[in-house]
Simulated scan of single mutants.
Amino acid sequence: MIQSLRLLNFRCFSSLSLEFPAEGVILIGENAQGKTSLLEAVCTLIRLHSPRTNRFNTLTKFSTPGFGIAADPWGQERKIQQTANGLKLKVDGEPRQSRTEYLSDGGLIVWMGNEDLSLIRGPGETRRHFLDFLGAQLDPKYRTAFTRYRRALKAKNLLLKEPKLRLPELIAYEEILIDHGTYLTETRRRLIEDLSPLVAAAQLDISGKNEALTLSYLPASGPSLKDSMLQARQREIATRQAVIGPHRDDVSIRLHGMPASDYASEGQQRTIALALKLAQGDLLHQRCARTPIYLLDDIFGELDPARRNALLNHLPKHAQKFITTTHLGWLESTEGISPLPVHQVSENSVRKL
């Protein structure tokens, strides 16, 4: 998938050039040495998205003017540069004028980390982000609708905070919100329908127990975004904040009919979080011609051998996997995974062991 990766002034790395085999690599090192940053670089290059920040300028090494990432995923030479003048994108040497154009023929990513527990325990924003990241990879129109909805939502909230109400402008922005928001809601609903059996199957594989796991989409707007927004207008004017729309939607995750956040044990919650990410990869694999790259950030130390082996056996055999870890003790009890090359990450450098 990725044979070579080159970084310039990215996070803690001044300059770095690495080569990887098709099956992937294990990155070992102490904390704060740059292991996660390497996974972040792959995700940023392929999806123009960092799981750790929403601001690209924070990815730049301290006291440098910008960063660069280059790699060859799926045989394409892709380069991104963050400069004082903004983000520059190239594919096979040709500039791409927008993020949408850059992503139109890009690759697929599944990111798995300990923070995935927040999918069960955390606020609705975490679960919405899970769906948005999946939806944007499956459907270019989803990312467009998401971007335009957010812009219109920001404008509406600014209007609601003004001392004098400008109703015609408010209505104009609401029409944009209804158009794109309805697309987001309907797409998310279908995603949950498609994910549900895959999550249940992955949860069974990992836990080895036939536990009833169900997902339900909970739109904040009810069946009609237009009607709900009209009914909430006076409340939004009074609170000076938009309270209706897909930015308030959520996903219900239940185990044996009970909320998993309240009634599932920590081990069950961790298993469900893994199942959600595995199902994400399964759906990407089913719908798209390309297998995702799997970025697994320091998760194996928290898993018992049975769940660890089940997770590795569930991953597509031919998928490229980048695995970070602080130790290799867990490998001794691991089954079903071909030996991966091990690279030591230390003091902002990487060497093959």
Rank of each mutant, 00 (worst) to 15 (best):
E169Q: 11
E169D: 12
L170M: 15
L170Y: 03
L170V: 11
I171C: 05
I171N: 07
A172D: 00
A172R: 00
A172Q: 01
A172L: 02
A172F: 01
Y173M: 01
Y173A: 00
Y173T: 00
E174I: 01
E175R: 04
E175K: 01
I176W: 01
I176E: 11
I176S: 08
L177S: 11
L177I: 14
I178W: 03
I178Q: 12
D179T: 15
H180M: 08
G181A: 07
T182F: 02
T182K: 03
T182V: 02
Y183D: 06
Y183A: 11
Y183K: 10
L184Q: 06
L184F: 02
T185C: 08
T185G: 08
E186L: 13
E186H: 11
E186F: 02
T187R: 13
T187I: 05
R188L: 04
R188S: 03
R189H: 10
R190H: 09
L191F: 05
I192C: 07
I192N: 06
I192E: 03
E193A: 07
E193R: 06
E193D: 08
D194W: 08
D194G: 07
D194S: 14
L195H: 07
S196T: 15
S196E: 12
S196N: 13
P197S: 10
P197F: 01
L198I: 12
L198H: 09
L198S: 07
V199G: 08
A200E: 14
A200N: 08
A200C: 04
A201P: 03
A201F: 01
A201M: 02
A201S: 14
A202I: 06
Q203K: 05
Q203S: 10
L204W: 05
L204F: 12
L204P: 00
L204T: 03
D205V: 03
D205G: 01
I206Q: 03
I206F: 04
S207Y: 04
S207T: 15
G208N: 03
K209R: 14
K209L: 11
N210W: 02
N210V: 06
N210R: 14
N210C: 02
A212E: 13
A212P: 00
L213M: 10
T214C: 02
T214Y: 01
L215R: 10
L215T: 10
S216W: 00
S216Q: 14
Y217C: 08
Y217S: 07
Y217W: 13
Y217K: 07
L218K: 14
L218Y: 04
P219W: 11
A220T: 07
A220L: 02
A220K: 07
A220Q: 12
S221D: 09
S221V: 05
S221E: 09
S221F: 04
G222I: 05
S224N: 14
S224F: 12
S224A: 07
S224P: 09
S224W: 13
L225A: 05
K226E: 15
K226M: 10
K226L: 11
K226H: 13
K226Q: 15
D227A: 15
D227V: 14
D227N: 15
